[in-house]
Write a protein that binds this DNA or RNA. Sequence first.
DNA 1: CGCGAGCTTGACGTTGTTCAACTAGAGTGG
DNA 2: CCACTCTAGTTGAACAACGTCAAGCTCGCG
Lengths: 229, 229
Amino acid sequence: MKFKKDFNCNDCPLKCEIYKAIVETGGDFSNLHPMQVSLVKNENICKQGSQVTHAIYLVSGTAKLFIEGLNNHNIILYILNPNSYIGLLSFFETPTYHYSVKPIEDACVCMVDLNFIKHLYIQNHRFLISLNIIFGKFVASIMQKIITLNQKNIRGRVADSLLYLAELHGSSNFNMLLTRKELGELSAISEENTVRLLTEFKNEGIISVNGRNIGIADKSLLKRISEFG
Amino acid sequence: MKFKKDFNCNDCPLKCEIYKAIVETGGDFSNLHPMQVSLVKNENICKQGSQVTHAIYLVSGTAKLFIEGLNNHNIILYILNPNSYIGLLSFFETPTYHYSVKPIEDACVCMVDLNFIKHLYIQNHRFLISLNIIFGKFVASIMQKIITLNQKNIRGRVADSLLYLAELHGSSNFNMLLTRKELGELSAISEENTVRLLTEFKNEGIISVNGRNIGIADKSLLKRISEFG
DNA sequence: CGCGAGCTTGACGTTGTTCAACTAGAGTGG
DNA sequence: CCACTCTAGTTGAACAACGTCAAGCTCGCG
């Protein structure tokens, strides 16, 4: 974990939502005090149960957002790409995080004091609305996740996860970055069954597997499997 | 379903959050046009997939909030008591409902145009903050639910549900209003296993069962079961 | 009186987890 | 350069947990 203090937004190549909102509202950066932090794998970006003090924005790298359950058994809810809010589900007056976030490759995040954010969205309603839209999408996909995890068999769930990852990477061929165990946590199944299903799908010619590189050969079939058939 | 149009908030015994916020902001009710609706069991208060046009507030009665899954298999997320928002999870710029709500006893709801609400929370930040606080709590309990449903055995899940209902009714002795099937949907298990566990708990002296009336005799033991022991 | 919805119980089969053993590759230190 | 160790991945077999099917029961209501 390496801090870059006294960071200046004008030097940042990523013109994030917060930056845009400030410019739109009058361009006063004097109270912003952004903090950029570099992290390596397995460091916590935020930790379930700890206090929410800053809005966190993923600048570069990829991260997993997960709930820490019983007996060290986690469930991964989303994979986060650069240019997305991390603290979002906790922006809204939640004292502590209900989930944890860790990078799955080296990453860089930017932290902004939460009081600044509140002040900003009260002044700038377009910003507030944009937060709410993202928030709404998160909730929608959690709902979907609850159904998927509870009502599909493990074949359908892994198919779902693979389609999700392809969508996320914008291609049918991608390096999923996740270990087998993590792919299992994304589908809420055991590591062993994850392996079994990957080889099963491979043998059926639905996907190609090369280490963590996945290629989806028959997307429509995978979709039918995901829909539970 | 029976509409009471041209309803006047000053005649309403329930001084809800929205009412209070309007009074606080200047007391202009002229654009409010609240609509009160009476519903009986099994009518939809709101329906998954349909458009969100109004904020809905539960005035009287009890309702279940559930996700409609595959093969007519639902999962109940919450039981709603009077004086709570129904549309809440969809207030924030979500075009369609991601869940359904139905009364489990005769109920009465009040509907307010969503544009009015938006206008109100932009003017009144205390109201916005109060919405966000409730929103945050909903999300927190969904997170908890995901873990519960995926990582606890059915004994733990039913124990959880019973403790939840006791909390909701504010007493260890309550009429749960739910059928066995619905209690199962609250715990995401089959109706048959729900019945089996109720009699199991009864035989173990942990609860008393009389139709839909439940009495929790040994709360601490039930808590230990819920914590997965 | 008969019908239907809700409830109850037993038997059975499927699904998925867990345990255990084994393999392959990447570091590490002598 | 070779043991060694550690992690990630893989496979098989045994077992436990749940869901499903089927049948019967009870009570309220037409």
